[in-house]
Design a protein around this nucleic acid. Structure first.
Lengths: 181, 181
DNA sequence: CCGACTTGTGTACGGCGTACACTAACCGTA
DNA sequence: TACGGTTAGTGTACGCCGTACACAAGTCGG
């Protein structure tokens, strides 16, 4: 028999806490996300949250990790530039979206498992496109820097995001092989 | 006679406070920068700081504004790509440097007068390079996004920063005029 | 000499993260 | 049926934070 079969339902869970935290941050901004307010939203005493997260920092990490992990993997069909567009747009949306006003939390998002998977996806696309390993690495970092930076810089939305991305892709494509001359 | 000639020296000043704040943030991280610790470093009571800044947010704004304003204007001689390199490298260093671990404060840096001057410098270079107004705007935003994003993404330093920047510049240059075909 | 102004001193309050000790509910076992 | 262990959530408490407010000390022009 399985050694775990506790019948009492905790009521709380990491998932439920993260949901509430994301909602609170989305509604009132990241600054309003305090352990006390969060506990209140869950109708629980503040210390209850510490059964599920070591401290507030761990909770924040989990929040951005979840957002990062939600970035959709693009299908592996179609031209590489289109797939790269989809991947980076999705990245940008995930980091600036659910994590919402989490702009300030960007750096920590780049250290999560989700980010590693993302890099894998990106590098695969670049490999398909004919970049060798070293160049794909540099290219991926440049693309990610652009995608992340565009969150801070803002601009007038998707067309502008695509414009810069296309220019960067143009440049990368032109440098793909040492020199065709 | 000039209406201001008070002989008592305040001891405190916005400049002195900002210096201490920058030092504290550089030494112990942005998280350690509290009004109380800062006041202690200046050997003053916390409330004294409020004579010079409305609140902590204003102080932080002033801090990043100063860093942004310190970005050197590149000389207007030489090829445009070289000048653009210098400007963006300087931007990146200023935002990631003195503001130090101020990574989290990046967004507010882009709303300062210093950032406006920076944009002016960048747009001037792009104009020299033959971009029309609209395209220079989009190009500048893309370049700034890349420079800012590279702070978050990290990477192995200057060569990598230059690599991505060059690829973006390549792409921008290729698109400068509608089509040369 | 005197009121006005400037600068920094104190005091106080509400909110924060969280350490720590506790209770209540439920389990498997005897 | 009774019981020790485990788990989930409850309370209490402490030290830090930003900052509102009232105040004293020093310096000015008149």
């Amino acid at each position: 028999m399985p050694p775990r079969a506790d019948k009492r339902e905790p009521g709380l869970s990491r998932e439920r806490i993260l949901d509430a935290a994301a909602a609170l941050a989305a509604d009132e901004g990241l600054g309003a996300l305090s352990m006390r307010r969060l506990a209140q939203a869950l109708d629980v005493w503040p210390m209850a949250l510490y059964r599920y997260f070591d401290d507030k920092d761990a909770l924040l990490d989990a929040l951005v990790a979840r957002a990062t992990a939600e970035v959709a993997s693009p299908s592996s069909a179609g031209p590489w530039r289109g797939r790269m567009h989809a991947l980076l747009r999705s990245t940008r949306d995930a980091l600036g979206g659910e994590t919402a006003t989490l702009g300030a939390e960007l750096p920590r998002a780049l250290l999560t498992p989700g980010a590693a998977r993302l890099a894998g996806d990106g590098l695969a696309i670049l490999a398909d496109a004919g970049f060798d390993d070293a160049e794909a690495q540099r290219a991926w970092r440049a693309l990610l820097a652009y995608a992340v930076g565009s969150l801070a810089v803002g601009g007038s939305g998707e067309p502008e995001f695509d414009y810069g991305l296309d220019r960067l892709l143009d440049g990368l494509e032109g440098a793909r092989r040492p020199a065709s001359a």
